[in-house]
């Protein structure tokens, strides 16, 4: 066995990659290096859109993710909320997924500074988990107060002042959909954008982004914040670094390791191939 083959075999040991991956993630988390990041045009456009919203914007935020996706999506939603709160918004939170209520409580503890500034029932409300998927999404557009009689905590929505300003789809300036899946983006495109032309903003996982790209390209959404990187860029733009920015070094190191393995794997693969070709020629 040649040296190249030996190295290739060592690189192919899965456990080696796993251990190195853990090390590469842990080191920057324990000792951040602060590698600079650029801000993409995509995130800058979203920032500008929110910056240009009128005062007291009416916003609906869909919390549609599980705990596994929270580390990628929560920082993005948190950063957008920190940006929005300066405009004294009226925010209606809702979840069309069963894990939504727990994720909402987590979000509240992630950005306590935001919720301290907002008064429940007047500036924001959480409707809780609604069953029915797209039908629930369609019902919300037609009148939230009429559809959801009690909020997540069992309080009647009929007397809540927020619904004087933000009840039907036409009242809203923006809908933000933070989702770990694909379907919910399409629901809002079909039930909120197409009939009522309510601007949509997508907050998606990196792995989901390609499948919703056509909606953004077609102008059915004003833009999207993708993954931890997008969240980190938004945190930079608002000048409030959060967990996404803190985790960027770890993500970079992990990606760097995988790239190094891919390149080295290819180099030794080709060395071996060339060596084997030489053998029959001898």
């Amino acid at each position: 066995m040649s040296v190249a083959e030996k190295i290739y075999n060592i690189l192919s040991i899965r456990q080696l990659l796993y251990v190195l991956l853990i090390i590469m993630v842990l080191i920057p988390l324990l000792h951040p290096f602060g590698i600079p990041i650029s801000i993409s045009s995509r995130v800058r456009e979203v920032y500008k859109y929110i910056e240009n919203l009128p005062d007291n914007p009416k916003v609906l935020i869909e919390i549609y993710y599980e705990p596994a996706a929270a580390t990628e999506l929560e920082p993005a939603v948190g950063a957008i909320l920190r940006h929005l709160v300066a405009k004294n918004p009226k925010i209606v939170f809702v979840s069309l997924i069963a894990t939504g209520p727990i994720m909402f409580e987590r979000l509240k503890s992630y950005v306590p500074d935001v919720f301290e500034k907002l008064k429940y029932g007047e500036d924001y409300v959480y409707l809780g988990f609604l069953t029915g998927g797209e039908t629930a999404c369609a019902s919300l557009a037609r009148g939230i107060k009429e559809y959801v009689v009690r909020d997540n905590y069992g309080r009647p929505t009929a007397d809540m002042p927020i619904f004087k300003y933000a009840n039907k789809a036409e009242d809203f300036d923006l809908v933000i959909i933070a989702s770990s899946g694909t379907d919910v983006f399409e629901w809002y495109v079909r039930q909120w954008f197409t009939p009522y032309h309510v601007p949509l903003l997508f907050v998606a996982l990196s792995v989901i982004a390609p499948s919703i790209e056509p909606f953004v390209a077609a102008g059915q959404a004003i833009g999207m914040i993708v993954g931890q990187r997008g969240a980190a860029e938004y945190e930079l733009l608002i000048g409030k670094p959060g967990s996404a920015l803190a985790a960027m070094d770890a993500q970079s190191f992990a990606h760097g390791l995988v790239i190094a393995f891919i390149i080295l794997g290819n180099v030794f693969y080709w060395i071996i191939r060339l060596q084997r070709k030489e053998i029959p020629g001898r």
Partner: peptide, 14 residues
Amino acid sequence: GLIVMLGNTSLGYV
């Protein structure tokens, strides 16, 4: 793949 991976990290920017 490498462009997208590097584009998603701060390492790529460096």
